[in-house]
Structure formats: C-alpha cells, structure tokens
Design a protein around this nucleic acid. Sequence first.
RNA 1: GUCCCUAUCGUCUAGAGGCCUAGGACAAUACCCUUUCACGGUAUGAACCGGGGUUCGAAUCCCCGUGGGGACGCCA
Length: 463
Amino acid sequence: MTVRTRFAPSPTGYLHIGGARTALFAWAYARRHGGTFILRIEDTDVARSTPAAVQAILDGMQWLGLAHDEGPFYQMQRMPRYKEVIAQMLAAGTAYHCYTSPEDLDAMRQEQMARHEKPRYDGRWRPEAGKALPVPPAGVAPVVRFRNPIDGVVAWDDGVKGRIEIANTELDDFIIARADGTPTYNFCVVVDDWDMKITHVIRGDDHVNNTPRQINVLAALGAQVPEYAHLSMILGDDGTKLSKRHGAVSVMQYDEDGYLPEAVLNYLARLGWSHGDDEVFSMEQFVQWFDLDHITSSAAQFNTEKLNWLNAHYIKSAATVRLAADVARRLARRGVDPEAGPPLEKVIALYQDRAANLNEMADACEPFCVAVHPSAEMIATHLTDAARAALKVLRDKLATCAWEKPAIGAAMKETLAACGMKMPQVAIPLRVALLGQPQSPAIDAVLEVLGRDEVLRRLDRSY
RNA sequence: GUCCCUAUCGUCUAGAGGCCUAGGACAAUACCCUUUCACGGUAUGAACCGGGGUUCGAAUCCCCGUGGGGACGCCA
C-alpha cells in the first residue's frame, strides 16, 4: 500500500501558521514513506471562499517548498460526483430527506441545552420500520441527512492521540446535503478521501469530533477507513488561540518580516514533534526522521524568540549571494538603490552573524548605499571638538595608507597615539560619521568595505 | 450544559515502571572574548498540576478532582 496524504484547506483566508504545520506534517509523512501528497481546496462555502485566498495558500505552500504531487483538486468541481453518491445513499436507505426548518431545529437545540443535554437532531424524519413519518410540507425543499447508527461505538486508533471511542448515541443524523442540493463539508471530505484513496488523514484536532461521523459514512459506503492522526493546535505567543491580533499569523507575513523559509520550517517541525534533542535540522533530515509516534498530543504555544534564534542561525549559514539577492529586493522596495554602495555581498558578510532577520540586514546595509544624516543629538554627543580633531588626523592617514584592514588598523592606532586617546574615543565618532550610528562591526572591516573614496567623502562632510 | 482531547522548567520538549539527584533547546542571569554593539564560549537558576490507588519501586499505569483546549451549524 502506498501512502497517500492530503492537505485540505478551505480558501477563506491566507495560509496561517497552524495550517502550514499541518501541511508540513502531511507532506513529510508522504515523503517519508515514498508516498503521494495531495492538495485539495475545500471551497464549498461559496460565500466565504475567494480565488485570492486560493492563491494565497498556493503562494504560502510554494514559499515553504511544500510541493504537492496531485491536485489542487477543487471540491466545487466535484459536485456531480457528490450528488451521485447522495443519490446512491438515498436509494440505499443510508440517507433520507428531512423537512425540519432551521427555525424548528434552533428551537429544538435551545430546549435540549435547557435540559442540559447535548443538542442533537431528534430523528423526526428518520425512516424506521413500522414508524409513520410526518407528511412532507408543501413547497419545502428538504435537506438530506445521513442515517447514523443508533447504538454501538465508533472507535479508531489515532496516530497521535491513541485509541478514541465515541458512542453513536453522541452522534446525530447530520445533514449531508443542504436544501439547495449542495453537499456539506463532512460529506465531501468522506467522498474525497475515498475517491482519492487517502491512506492517512493528518489534520488539526478540531476534527476529532468529525471523525466518528466520517467513519460512519465511510462504513455506510462500504469504503475502507483511512488512518487518522490529529494534530493539536498551535497557540499564540501569549497562550491564547491564534488570531489576527497575534501579528504574523500568515505564512507570507514571515517572508515579509524577514524570516527564511527554512527557519520557519525547522521551527514548525519542532513545534509539537521531536527527535530526541535535535533542534536544528534540514528538511532532508526531517523527512528521514519524521514519525507519528513523536508528535505531542497537547497544544503548543508559539514562541517567536525561538523562531528568531533559528532564523539568525540560518542567516549565518546561508550563502551570501542568496542573502544579497533578497536584501537587494528589500532595499529596492524602500527606494534605496542596492547598487549605490559597495558590493552588497561584502556588506552582508559584515553583518551575517549579527542580523536576526532579513529586514535587520537591510537596515544594516542601507547606510552603505545612501548618505547618512546622524541626528543632531548624535552629533552633539559623539562628534565633539576633540573627536573631530582626531578624525581629521585619521583622515589624512587614511588618504594615503594601503587599503586593507592591517594598514587601516595601524592608521587608527597611530591616530590614538598622536591624540592621546583610547580606541572607543575615536572609533565611536568614526562610526557616527560614517554610518550614522555608534555601533557597527569591527571598524577596520567597515572601512575596508566602504572604500577609501567613500570614507574620505563622508569624513570630509563631518568636520 | 453535554461529549471529546489534554497536563514535565517562563516557552518548545526528552522521558514507553528502576538508566531521573528529571536531560536538551529558546529565553533569563553571571562571567569570558572584544575596538563599540552583536556573534561566540563557559557557568548558574528554573519543571514532573493536586489527591488517591497499583507496584518492592511511578514523571511514566489506573481512578477522581482541577486547569487548559476543542466540538456540539443547511461553516469548513
């Protein structure tokens, strides 16, 4: 049996971080077992589904590098198939028409809640041997309900939660087709998983309660029941349910915020899954190691600080050319010409083990490309008369010395000796004059990269 | 309300009855490195939700509480 997994988002918004992890795990499981990963778009909620959201999901998947082998399949394009199955079930007696109005249903639920009962459809239109059904009201289009077993339990061995058993008395005859004939979610999922020969359903644990219903329908259809693995949810940084106010919930927002996809992937893989003490690993390793046994069954809180650490790690080890290409785009978007300064790769090499994200990297590169204007306050505190005098001495040495770190360092030291100053007393004003800020990587390296002409030009402007 | 899931440092987690004086990572703190700020290095503090069982022995198994989450739609 070849493994077939699927990721089945509904296109009602962007791909958020929880969905991304679900996709990652389903993808990894298929890859691990040489199987097939299928993308299915569950767009039967016509009112809320949008093409833009479909595109956003596709973009997010692509950014993460989670390639699907089949699909995307769109449920809206499978309507004839769903209707066919519904007709079959109606004919077989495993489904029936129900004429109860939404208002009556609502009233029924209210009463049940008032009686401290779980709200369930009471089966008034359910055909039963020897039972007289009400007369269908005229002019009312019925919904189609699934004829759920009355007794017994539905059980399955969940890949992450272990054995789960739910009594059929907890379930009711749920609607599989609306009055307008369109099928509902729980039904479409069943037909799709069946038709697409899904062997492992890996999804969020908000679906645990849907699983027994789906298993029952599968059984009524005579279909094979797949394995299920329910992933617990990801909570926000503050321990509450993930929502818009948590900031970067969309996967593409992480791109925007300067994260590398491999950092996000590594972080997500480690959130709710573990392989001993391993923290940093490639997707190749992840695919090799991934298993359902080491998935955590409780909800996990998102921790941006750890993601930041991973991101910094991946920036340190990334190829400089690649970072340069990305940072060039970011600078251009800010209206900064990335070509205006020294070769970007050289600047990036200076900052590669200091930047936690690509936007910080762009911040660091910017002053190399544009003229800097330190604030009046910065000038007042750092470019004192004594500092200016020292910089003038230094300037003349820099004008003639060899342009490489040792010689530049020597020029600095000579200046210190000539002026009777300590290194920071000169280096800090120099940083302010050159880059507009009192901190930078090693000053000789900065000078070397900035270039003699530009260094002299900036020094001349500042005293 | 009913049903389902869940519970180890602040956070992510290791842990499958003795290997646990509970390990790793992020974060925190201290020190070292240093030409500033970072990076890096070293060290320190920090947890088995509570109560009952089972057992020679429980973080690990069972039960009951409590906390957290989810579901109960002609949404997905």
